[in-house]
C-alpha cells in the first residue's frame, strides 16, 4: 500500500494560499477502503466541522465500496487512487480506478427507495448513490485511458449542510 501526502504550494494559488493535497493509493478491497478512510479523516478532521467530516467519510465510503463491489466485480488486483484537496470553496475529491466503466445510470440523481411499503418489500440497497448525490455537488465522471475518474465537491461552511434535504 502506498500512502503519501503531498504539499503543492503551486504558483497558481493566491499568495499565501496553502494547497494541501491528500493522496492515497490502495488495493481495492473493503479493508483497505477502511484504512484509506481512516487516513483521510485523520488528515482533514481537524480542519472541518464534525458534520462535514461525517458527510465526507460517508460519501467516500459509498464511492469506494461501489468500486470494490462493482467496478472490480470480476476480481483481480485492482487499485483505487484517492485525492482530496481542501480549498476555499470546500473540499474537492477525485477517485480513480481501472475497473469496468461506470454505468451512466449512476450519474442520474436517483429517487430514494420507497420506504412506505410492507416489511417484506423494504429496500436493503439502493441508498449509496442517493447519499452520494445528496451530499455532494459538481459530481462529474470521465472515462479516461481505461480508468474511471469520478470527481466531486463537498461544500463547507454552510451551517448545517448535511441537513438541507431533510
Amino acid at each position: 500500500m502506498l500512502a503519501e501526502q503531498m504539499r503543492d504550494e503551486g504558483d497558481e494559488g493566491e499568495p499565501g494560499t496553502r494547497r494541501d493535497i491528500f493522496q492515497h493509493r490502495f488495493a481495492a478491497d473493503q479493508h483497505a477502503v477502511r484504512g484509506a478512510l481512516r487516513a483521510a479523516m485523520a488528515r482533514f478532521k481537524q480542519e472541518i466541522r464534525a458534520e462535514e467530516a461525517g458527510a465526507l467519510e460517508l460519501v467516500l465510503a459509498e464511492i469506494m465500496n461501489n468500486i470494490v463491489k462493482h467496478s472490480y466485480a470480476g476480481g483481480g488486483d485492482g487499485t483505487i487512487s484517492l485525492s482530496i484537496l481542501r480549498d476555499q470553496r470546500g473540499i474537492s475529491c477525485s477517485v480513480r480506478d481501472d475497473g469496468v466503466p461506470l454505468p451512466p445510470a449512476c450519474l442520474v440523481v436517483p429517487g430514494l427507495p420507497k420506504t412506505a411499503v410492507a416489511k417484506a418489500d423494504l429496500p436493503e440497497g439502493g441508498f449509496g448513490w442517493y447519499l452520494i448525490h445528496t451530499l455532494t455537488c459538481d459530481l462529474g465522471y470521465r472515462r479516461e485511458a481505461g480508468q474511471n475518474l469520478l470527481a466531486f465537491r463537498l461544500p463547507l461552511g454552510t451551517p448545517d449542510g448535511l441537513d438541507q434535504l431533510s
Partner: peptide, 16 residues
C-alpha cells in the same frame, strides 16, 4: 460511530 449504506441494508435485512 459510522454507518454506510451496506450497514444500513444489513440492519434492514435483519428486521425483515
Amino acid at each position: 460511530g459510522f454507518l454506510d449504506s451496506s450497514g444500513l441494508g444489513a440492519i434492514v435485512s435483519v428486521m425483515k
